[in-house]
Design a protein around this nucleic acid. Structure first.
Length: 446
DNA sequence: AGCACA
């Protein structure tokens, strides 16, 4: 055989290629900087940066071989070396003829996130919890879950890559808050990359996949209950037809729950159109109307079983109403139409709207929220809202209305990054109530 | 300062 030296001994005699190999680049050199460097010599059609163990190498590919030759020739005889950010960059022809795979799918932003849930109990995280977590950033279209060698993973589909990016930036590396998980679960950390998928295929609503854009998608046959109208949920609960109107019943109502309290609690998830309260079976119930089903679904999932006040008081039980549009005849202390300027301009029985209620304020969900370590102590504090009655059972009962469920800030949402469409009506609540921020008792502090 | 990775 003739000696075909595929591995040339002398790399400085590399034959020309339209791909150039760059080294000694500054840390985290960007594609833009590489293009700037090559642009005077021709058209840069592809780049790859952060190559090598030190991530200080890169490749740039020209449209034409002559352009690459021009760049090498120029710097071979130039008194000024090629530089990026003032750092000398060494150039040579690459031993390859084209850049392959410039970007991995994990680098290019898409509307679908690949979420790996880490932790011993990762696979016990329900799809509903994931939905709740990711819904903070926008409407979640679909979720599929699966187990691979990488562990328990989920694909979460948003409308667009901007929303997905916001969720990724906020949640990557963070842990799901303990209070969203069954008590015995260990920490569950989210690792998030972009998926190459753009539209997930969900055939059934099942314990491993959901399509929130299609509430009428058939439930997986394995989960169907014979009773007809209601099919069994994936976790054994009954599934009702979703509705934009929620029926909330209040259990253990030690303290008065006013219409305004309900408004504050439920408006965390979106604008409220109407509320009607009434007595039934010796307890108080309320119908809460949102403009759309999705908002109601998120509110129901977030609030079901939680207590408005710490200590297990005023526990909410929420189901979907068969109503779609409530008929509010008059605004009073039991019913209100927030969409009607005529009605709402009438003097309220309460004489104030809404009732300012002191309570924990907005810092609960900032940064530390998702910090993986040491949130065990959270459950031992008399925490603001979201405590399940069981979790809060040991806490001393607060005075009435001292601890309304926090509703000013949405879970998981770093302040300032909130997409306005995700929880409309939430920000105004902060100003309406005028709560002093300093009154906050962030249960997640430290 | 010396050639990448799904």
């Amino acid at each position: 055989m003739a000696s075909v030296s595929s591995q040339p001994q002398f790399r400085y005699t590399q034959p020309p290629s339209k791909v150039l190999h760059l080294r000694n680049l500054p840390w985290e050199c960007t594609e833009e900087e590489l293009i700037e460097l090559g642009k005077p010599f021709g058209k840069v059609v592809n780049t790859k940066c952060n190559v090598g163990a030190n991530r200080n190498q890169a490749f740039i590919e020209f449209a034409d071989l002559n352009q690459a030759i021009a760049m090498i020739s120029y710097y071979a005889s130039s008194s000024e070396p090629a530089q990026v950010r003032g750092k000398t960059v060494y150039l040579q022809y690459s031993n390859r003829q084209e850049i392959v795979n410039n970007k991995t799918s994990a680098d290019v932003a898409g509307n679908v996130l690949l979420v790996t849930i880490e932790g011993a109990d990762a696979r016990l995280v329900s799809i509903d919890v994931l939905h709740l977590v990711f819904s903070a950033f926008g409407f979640v279209h679909k979720i599929t879950t699966f187990e691979k060698t990488a562990g328990f993973q989920a694909l979460v589909q948003f409308s667009d890559s901007e929303t997905a990016s916001a969720a990724k930036n906020a949640l990557d590396g963070r842990s799901i808050p303990r209070y969203l998980l069954p008590e015995h679960l260990g920490p569950c950390t989210l690792r998030i990359t972009f998926s190459a998928h753009t539209d997930l295929s969900v055939k059934f609503q099942s314990h491993r996949s959901r399509d929130y854009t299609n509430p009428y998608l058939p439930v997986a046959s394995s989960a169907i209950d014979g009773s007809g109208q209601f099919s069994m949920g994936f976790d054994g609960r009954k599934v009702e037809p979703e509705s934009n109107v929620l029926l909330a019943s209040i259990e253990n109502m030690q303290y008065a729950v006013t219409l305004d309290v309900l408004h504050m609690v439920f408006s965390a998830f979106g604008p409220i159109q109407k509320i009607a309260m009434f007595d039934k079976n010796g307890g108080v119930q309320a119908l809460i109307q949102y403009p759309d089903v999705q908002t109601a679904v998120v509110a129901k999932e977030a609030l079901e079983g939680h207590c408005i006040y710490d200590g297990g008081f005023c526990k909410l039980h929420i189901s979907y109403s068969r109503h779609t549009d409530l008929s509010i005849k008059v605004n009073n202390d039991r019913s209100r139409d927030y969409t009607s300027p005529v009605l709402s301009s009438q003097p309220s029985v309460l004489g104030q709207q809404p009732v300012p209620i002191p309570g924990p304020s907005t810092h609960q969900f900032e940064g530390a929220q998702y910090a993986p370590p040491s949130d065990q102590q959270v459950m031992h504090q008399p925490s603001a809202g979201w405590a399940t009655s069981a979790a809060a059972a040991g806490a001393p009962p607060p005075p009435p209305q001292s601890m309304p469920m926090q509703q000013h800030n949405h879970p998981y949402m770093p302040p300032g990054t909130m997409p306005p469409q995700s929880v409309p009506g939430m920000m105004p609540m902060q100003t309406q109530t005028g709560l002093p921020q300093s009154a906050a008792m962030p249960p997640y502090s430290h």
